[in-house]
Each structure stands twice: as C-alpha cells, then as structure tokens.
Design a protein around this nucleic acid. Structure first.
Lengths: 166, 166
DNA sequence: TCCATTTAAATCGTACACGATTAAATCGTG
DNA sequence: CACGATTTAATCGTGTACGATTTAAATGGA
C-alpha cells in the first residue's frame, strides 16, 4: 500500500507493534526512500569532495561547466532545477575560490556568463575518479543502475506535471 | 555507463553535441536522478503542506509521532538519519507552533521526550489525505512503486555501508 | 516612439543539513 | 566509590533551498 493508506499501528495511543521498533517507521513512504537515498549520496559525496573543497551542489555546477564551458546562470538553474536565489550566492562562492568567473554579457546586460578559470578547469583532473567511486559504492549492476535511473526519471516527470496542474 | 565513465562531449573547449542542449546534461548521473526526484517531492509536498503550515521535514517528524507518540530526539534522529543540530531547532519550531511538547525525561535527565499536543494530534486529520495525493501524483503502479522503493533501499544501504568503510 | 510586460539576476528572511565543539548526565570498570 | 568514557542534547558557523520582493535591461505592441 505504501504512500497510500497507512493503517498499521494507527490508533491514537498506540504502543509499538513490535515489528517496526526503532527507525523502521517510514519504510513504506516512497518519498522517504528518495529522501534517504539523497542523504546517503550527500554523505558519500561529502567524503569524496572534501579534498577538492567542493560541496555536492557545487560539484554539480562544476560538472556542467566541465562538460560545456561558458553558461549563463539561467542555463545552470534550468539544468539543476535551482533558482537564482540559490545559485547566485553559490556561484559567488565558486568565484571566491577562483574556480569560475562571472561576466556580464555585453550583448544582453541582464545576463551573467559563468565560465571556468584555469584553476576550475584543472580541478577536473582531481574529480575524474569520482563517478567511478560513486558507481562502485552504489553496488548496483549496470542493468539495475539503468532501471533505477529510468524509474526515477519517470517519477520526477510525473511529480512535476502533477505539480504544474495544482 | 552512467555514473562511471563520462565520455561524451568531453573535450576541453567543447561546443554542444546537439543532443544534450539545455538541461539534459546530467541525465546519466544516478545521484542526479535521486537529487531531482527529491526536489520534485519537495515541491509537491510544499504545495500540499502549505495549508498545514508544515515543512516537509516537519511533516516527517509529525508522521513519526502520529504513528507512535512520545519519542526521544534520538529516536527521531535515528528514524530520519538527522543529527541533533538539525532536529533541535526544528522541534523547537514545532513546539513554538504548539504541535509538540519537549520534556526532559525524569529518569534520564539527558533525554528529551517529544510528544504531541492536542493541536498536534488534531492536525493528523488534516494531513490524512496527503499520502493518497502523493501516491497518485507519483503516477506509478503498485508494482512499480514497490520495486522503486526496494531498489532505493538497496541503494541507500550500499551507499551507507560503503561510506562506513571509507 | 513609448510604455507595459517580460526576463535575468540579486536580495532578504526562514528553514533545513551538517561539521565541530561544548556541556551535562549516565555508565562501566577498576 | 571514583573517574574516565560514552551518551544525549545543544550551540555555532557555513552552505544550500526557496518564497517574496526588487532592480535593471530588453522586448513588443499600440
């Protein structure tokens, strides 16, 4: 039944069913499984990114730039589903670390172009091993990996379109 | 290949492969699929929880308490994989909203017991429809739902144990 | 041309999330 | 009993994440 009708141990003054003692309480929430998997990725990335001095979201931004340099803040926001109010300070931090530069577009003064500095490009080498590490840590077969990714994509798409209609 | 060897459009000064124009750049990252699905849940829950005046993490805490009232901060932290430094302020906010009360345990003065107030219990009725809404918004069949949850669970478990060994 | 609209970005305030540190109560072992 | 180790919680600082608002630049009709 999962995220639908919760009716185990539902009485007002319940007293432990015995089956879900300690921390097994939200097991049937899909949202929670996603939330937990995301936390787990955060923890793993934190340890991997520590020596690069990057946070996980910062790493995602850098990854975008490593793939295609010179992007607008809007581009990055679209790619990561993040707003300016999140990105502006974050990119300024990357700028302060001298990994990227922020330059107003000369054609359209509203636009800020973000591009890698030499330091930012160089950091790519150090980050090269990370995807491997993460893939291994996930412990999934190629097939399971791809299936999961695809299922999550469908889920995200469904959730988004449902949200739009609200 | 996904999270393993990224070798499309990988040259230093790349110029758009044409296939991944705008926002399709991180598609082959499993971590990113999880990150995005989590954001999508956040957005959906934000709209659902708005009228209850709860945030998504606050809702998770309330859900735990609705299932079994009277938990220690530690219990809640274990269930949600959150630290005291996240929970203490959050639970204080719930207390300020008069949804829960925080009482030092008389047996063990280190422990803080969190339990629902009348208002907190009552809120349960208003939240009753939410799991249904979310399940529908996910647009997954019962089977797909369960498979995904299970795959995420495996993933989380693998990531965690890998992190422990680091 | 002019001005309402739209767009890109920034700012402000609130709320997680967590590393590091601190403090107090309890426990374990000699 | 004593005292160091452990456990529980809180505090502080940094960094996302986002709603609401603001600013400035570009755009598109009448």
């Amino acid at each position: 039944m999962s995220e639908r009708t919760e009716n185990k141990d539902t009485s007002e003054m319940s007293m432990e069913t015995g089956l879900d003692g300690q921390g097994r309480d939200l097991d049937d929430f899909l949202c929670f499984a996603v939330y937990e998997a995301n936390l787990a990725f955060n923890h793993l990335y934190r340890s991997l990114l520590d020596e690069l001095g990057l946070t996980y979201p910062q790493y995602l931004v850098m990854t975008l730039l490593w793939r295609r340099n010179e992007r607008t803040v809007k581009d990055i926001g679209d790619a990561l589903s993040l707003e300016y109010n999140t990105l502006t300070p974050m990119i300024k931090r990357l700028e302060a670390m001298e990994l990227v530069s922020r330059v107003r577009d000369t054609q359209d003064q509203r636009v800020v172009n973000v591009c890698l500095t030499a330091r930012g490009s160089a950091l790519r080498e150090k980050a090269a091993a990370i995807p491997q590490c993460v893939a291994e840590a996930s412990g999934l077969s190629e097939k399971a990996f791809e299936q999961l990714r695809s299922a999550l994509d469908t889920l995200r798409s469904n959730l988004k379109s449902s949200g739009d209609r609200t």
